[in-house]
Design a binder for these strands. Structure first.
Length: 524
DNA sequence: TTTGGGGACTCAGAAATGTACTG
DNA sequence: GCAGTACATTTCTGAGTCCCCAA
């Protein structure tokens, strides 16, 4: 502290380490983060510390930071045996606490540890970033198990907040988190029977939507003319949810979270209307932050009636007013429930994602391709879905570099192709002159070589395109949460692609139900 | 009768960790 | 054969959706 070390109380010191560990992160440069942190930090200080430490800017965390950097490096540099030992210890803990017994089956738990204390990191412009996330004590934890089971013992000298026996819910333990005052749960791993069955159900609901979606579309198109403004807004919103795979957009408490929206919570400022744009008519330009503060930007040509309705909804409103001021997700979902049992707004996302994958696979797969080529088609189809759902990622740090390396490979291959072309020419000339069998064989050999090189070049080019197109797109989310795995499994079986090529071990465990179920004829 | 909050679950990208490849 | 790095996988926990219930 101003230039000289200061001995802190244990609690104060621990919180200081939370901040020091994050020094490299952009978070710590933000004023809100600093203010929230300092406010919460001071609350935990002794009165003497409060007296001394009145200004965060005067605190120098660099020594603490350095300590942790060194510690993590020391850990990395540990000899093999030591690392092995650590791993074994972790495995032992996993073995003891990572499983539960459900209906007589041993099932893997998803998150079997409570979250450690630290500084809250919200996504985007979060008003609570930097606040202190407190340590969870046994006294905060509710245990949920069967009456006749062996009830887990709390740590020595502690007791649980509560032990209950509720078999209508799936969680094993829960606690209330102190930042947003919401519940957190210990639940099963996606590979469990329970989660698998729910996953299956989800896709079955989406498949049922397939049967009635045409009627529903006809219905909402008709409702664009509804006399009731509420219904008209609902019909336009549903059109966006269906066509653009937008999320429902529940209302959120202002000031508690980052300012993000979904369909029903869109504000006037989030869209622009262009009667004409780039040769298209009735273009709506969307620009807003969605879940996780991921930007949604899109220009879409819409039906004239939708366009007119939007103009009407925006009339005499401020930019910060709700676009669909008469609409709530509750009202929308009630309507959907009425149209089809189990139908809610999010089902459209699942349905459109899965049907898009199926259609794209049909359109893009060439049975003549080798496995690599087919996988490329698969990734393209997957990508189409990710684009639809707006699943983004930040550009990988090493992207530019690895792209350069790939480009260098392509250039080298090009050169090889050129050389092979010349060699072939030479061989052909020679054959022209000599017309002997040896020269002919040589021509064939050179032809083969050229062909192989050209194929390699083509493959590299495709790889580069694939990489470039994938730069900002995250495929994982749709693969894990939106695409009926049976579509992919059927595709694999039909085209002789090993399932391991598209699903890794964890994913195969999660989709075990589908692997057991789908044959090559499966249709979503 | 809506509205608001609690509760339980799915979905989300970043960060940490593990593995495989390359020079 | 080994270290360093690129890439893949796993973990983590925040951020949504949607239902229910009570005032």
């Amino acid at each position: 502290f101003p230039g000289k070390p200061l001995k802190l109380s244990l609690a104060t010191e621990e919180i200081a380490t939370f901040y020091a560990k994050m020094l490299d992160h952009e978070y710590t440069t933000k004023e809100i983060f600093q203010n929230n942190f300092f406010h919460d930090w001071r609350k935990e200080m002794t009165s003497e510390e409060q007296e001394i430490i009145q200004d965060l800017a005067k605190c120098d965390f660099s020594e603490i930071h350095k300590y942790f950097v060194e510690k993590s490096e020391a850990r990395k540099a540990l000899p093999k045996e030591e690392k092995q030992k650590l791993k074994e210890e972790a495995d032992k803990i996993q073995e003891e606490y990572g499983y539960c017994l459900l209906d007589g089956h041993r099932e893997k738990i998803g998150n079997f540890k409570t979250e450690p204390p630290g500084l809250f990191r919200g996504r985007g412009d979060h008003p609570k970033m930097g606040m202190l996330k407190k340590r969870i004590m046994p006294e905060d934890v509710i245990i949920n198990c069967s009456k006749d089971s062996k009830i887990p013992e709390p740590p020595e000298g502690h007791k649980w907040k509560e032990v209950r026996f509720d078999n209508t819910v799936t969680w094993l333990a829960s606690w209330t988190e102190n930042i947003q005052n919401t519940l957190k749960y210990i639940m099963l791993n996606p590979s469990s029977k329970l989660k698998g069955e729910k996953d299956w159900q989800k896709y079955e609901v989406a498949r049922r939507l397939k049967d009635v979606v045409h009627e529903i579309r006809a219905r909402y198109r008709a409702d664009w003319k509804s006399k009731e403004m509420k219904n008209r807004q609902r019909a336009v919103a549903l059109y966006f949810i269906d066509k653009l795979a937008l999320r429902a957009g529940n209302e959120k408490e202002e000031g508690e979270t980052a300012d993000t929206v979904g369909c029903c919570s869109l504000r006037v400022e989030h869209i622009k209307l262009h009667p004409r744009l780039d040769g298209q008519e009735h273009v709506v330009e969307f620009d807003f932050l969605g879940k996780d503060s991921i930007r949604y930007y899109n220009k879409v040509s819409v039906e004239k009636r939708v366009f007119k309705n939007l103009q009407l909804f925006m009339k005499n409103k401020d930019p910060s007013d709700d676009l669909f001021d008469r609409l709530t997700t509750n009202f929308l979902n009630k309507h959907l429930q009425h149209l089809m049992d189990g139908l809610t707004a999010k089902v459209f996302r699942t349905y459109n994602a899965s049907i898009t994958l199926q259609e794209q696979l049909k359109a893009l797969t060439n049975p003549e391709d080798n496995v690599a080529g087919k996988l490329l088609s698969y990734n393209r189809a997957n990508r189409a879905v990710a684009v639809l759902c707006n699943h983004q990622r930040s550009v990988p740090k090493t992207f530019a570099k690895s792209m350069e390396i790939l480009q260098a490979k392509i250039d080298a291959k090009k050169k090889q192709v050129e050389e092979a072309q010349q060699e072939l020419k030479k061989a052909e000339d020679e054959l022209e002159d000599t017309k002997d069998a040896k020269a002919e064989a040589n021509v064939e050999k050179k032809k083969k070589l050229l062909k192989r090189l050209e194929e390699q070049l083509a493959r590299l080019n495709v790889q580069a395109t694939d990489k470039e197109e994938n730069k900002q797109i995250a495929l994982g989310t749709s693969k894990l949460n939106y695409l009926d795995p049976r579509i992919s499994i059927a595709w694999c079986k039909k085209f002789g692609v090993p399932i391991e090529k598209i699903y890794n071990k964890t994913q195969r465990e999660k989709f075990a139900w589908a692997i057991a179920m789908a044959n090559e004829d499966f249709e979503f």
